[in-house]
């Protein structure tokens, strides 16, 4: 790669993320409203958490009446992958000792931002990361605000159906992963089956059930996947 990365390049690389985040966050904004949260609280979630799966998980558990501790543990669990993403990001920073660069990169490392940054092929500098993180973050926060405010103008059937966007996002991620590696579907099916059994069959709390199902499917996955397939060869 020739030359230093620029702020403009970061914004350009982040614009597809902006579009995806804005539309997904519309659903999230509406969800915070239908869950009975105030506008300020809805925006604050996206401002401080800035995490798609974590925020949707948090609201799902909140709505199903889970305990605060269950919610925090579940959100922490779903976020453990960031430990590894962030660890692998260290080696890609232009100046690994720059505290502002580490703070911006750490705060902004969502799944999508991580993927774009990782495949960039140049050392990541402050200008580029600011552009990439900023444009994605704006899409997420703005989408949440618009979704909260404009959500009620939508017809009732659309409002009801919009719940699906959450699950559609996850199913879409699954579709992409399954195309790359067919056995992904077996790990998925195990965790889906266990979670359904625990919640519907045993009336287990959603938070605890989620953790057990996820760990069981992870261990199963570790048996059927090779190191190369998970990218740690």
């Amino acid at each position: 790669m020739a030359g230093k990365l620029t702020l403009k390049e970061g914004i350009k690389d982040g614009s597809p993320i902006f579009v995806g985040y804005f539309t997904t966050a519309l659903a999230f904004g509406l969800l915070t409203r239908t869950s009975g949260l105030r506008f300020v609280e809805g925006i604050l979630i996206s401002l401080t958490n800035y995490s798609g799966s974590g925020q949707f998980l948090m609201m799902n558990l909140y709505n199903s009446g889970a305990l605060l501790l269950e919610i925090c543990i579940s959100v922490l669990f779903i976020n453990t992958r960031y430990l590894f993403m962030a660890s692998s990001l260290v080696g890609r920073l232009e100046d690994p000792n720059s505290i502002p660069l580490k703070l911006v990169s750490g705060f902004g490392t969502t799944d999508e931002v991580f993927a774009v940054a990782s495949f960039k092929g140049s050392k990541l500098n402050m200008q580029y990361m600011c552009g990439l993180v900023f444009i994605s973050y704006i899409g997420w926060v703005l989408g949440t605000a618009v979704g909260y405010v404009a959500g009620t103008f939508l017809p009732e059937v659309i409002q009801k159906a919009s719940v699906i966007t959450v699950y559609a996002m996850f199913a879409s991620l699954l579709g992409g992963e399954t195309r790359k590696l067919t056995k992904t579907i077996f790990v998925f099916m195990l965790s889906a089956a266990l979670n359904s059994l625990f919640i519907i069959g045993f009336s287990m709390s959603v938070g605890i059930s989620f953790i057990i199902s996820m760990i069981a499917a992870t261990l199963f996955g570790a048996r059927i996947y090779t190191d190369e397939e998970v990218g740690i060869a």
């Binding site: 996850f170 998925f188 992870t218």
Partner: peptide, 12 residues
Amino acid sequence: MLLPVAALGALI
């Protein structure tokens, strides 16, 4: 690395 994939089933 496998945790996100495993989480999808229980998320849906």
